[in-house]
Amino acid sequence: MRITLPGKAAGIMASQREQAEQQRARLGVEARSWYRITNAADPDEAEVMIYDEVGGWWGTTADDLIAELKGISAPRMRVRINSPGGSVFEGIAIANALRAHPASVTVQVDAIAASIASVIAMAGDRIEMAPNSMLMIHDASGMAWGNAQDMEEMAELLDLISDNIADAYAQRAGGTREQWRDRMRAETWYLPEDAVANGLADEAVPAPKAGTPAAEPETEPEPEMARAWDLAAYGYHGPRAEQPKAEGVELERESHTLHEDIRSLIGEEIAAQLAAAVAPAEPVAETTPVEPAPDLPAAEPEPEAPTAEDPWAAMTAHLTQDEPDAWSVLVSTLTTTASSSAATEA
């Protein structure tokens, strides 16, 4: 902690800010912001980051931060600290602004909360120590110039300020002012577990274990549309396993199935007629003609077998025959003889 006393005449609180402004103006530099306020991922929680020295020659004053704190309307606020400390009175002003804010304040020590930054941490409704972070407390220190009386007044003021800071620790963690002053005089450092054990923090956030597999994302339920196209509802259960089959058996089975399907469509009678119409004719075996022997007469063709006569046609056959002409009967012998004679003479 640091407090600057420029001299008795100027007063304890008179010109710290004026000197800082004059120094920046002389060097031609702008004030360096040592805090940042952002919106966290959760819209109901604001995030305030104090990641530098509090106040001081190069920092900004607490009134800028406090003015922005008034604009936070979120029900929760997370204050993340990584600061070595700084101006005592700037830090006390910030701590009181956090206590007065209507939001529920969680302080998270990301790396270090030392000196007056540890007092700011005590303003949280809940204090969390990140893995490997540290918290440090010590007595106030400052600068002064003047005579011996000025130095004695400075020593008394530093004791008073340190007692005031010890009360902040005692109010949060319990114990007495003198107990905490003893720890402050010794400049005590606390690891996360030590801070929790001594009442300066509520939780030491555990570090994630190395090699821990990331949680698998939750599987979303299958959309209704996808289930509507489930082919199992229509009796389809995927392709059947291929069975070994003998050559020609599958073709015969498929032909038989097709044959049965056609019969069921057109009927047995029509199917039989179609089968008879398209049946191929029996092939006639080709034979080589046998020529007769040279000295043998050709074989006479066998007479055709008489066909069975119709009985009715046999009984009526004489009725349908023409009567012979009388003249023809008389000259028939002459014609026959003459023909015979001619044939003989020739």
Rank of each mutant, 00 (worst) to 15 (best):
A314S: 07
M151E: 10
P303C: 06
V278G: 15
Y35D: 01
E302P: 11
D261M: 14
W58D: 14
A121K: 01
W57A: 13
I127K: 00
E222V: 15
A93K: 03
L69P: 11
S33L: 11
Q19H: 11
I3C: 07
A168Q: 06
N164W: 04
I50T: 03
S340E: 11
Q243K: 10
L334E: 12
A343L: 02
S141F: 09
A123Q: 01
A305N: 04
A170P: 04
L98C: 03
E187D: 08
V205N: 15
Q243L: 05
D261W: 14
I50G: 01
V284P: 03
G248K: 05
T288N: 14
A170C: 07
L160G: 12
A113H: 03
M151D: 12
Q23F: 14
Q22E: 14
S133N: 02
E218Y: 05
I94S: 00
W58I: 08
P306F: 13
V79D: 00
S104F: 11
T257N: 09
V249P: 06
P223T: 06
P301N: 07
D42G: 08
W145P: 02
G146P: 00
E153I: 09
M13I: 09
S340F: 15
M49E: 12
I81V: 01
E53Q: 12
R78D: 07
G235Y: 12
L98W: 02
L69E: 15
N39F: 07
M122A: 01
P84K: 03
E156I: 09
I112W: 13
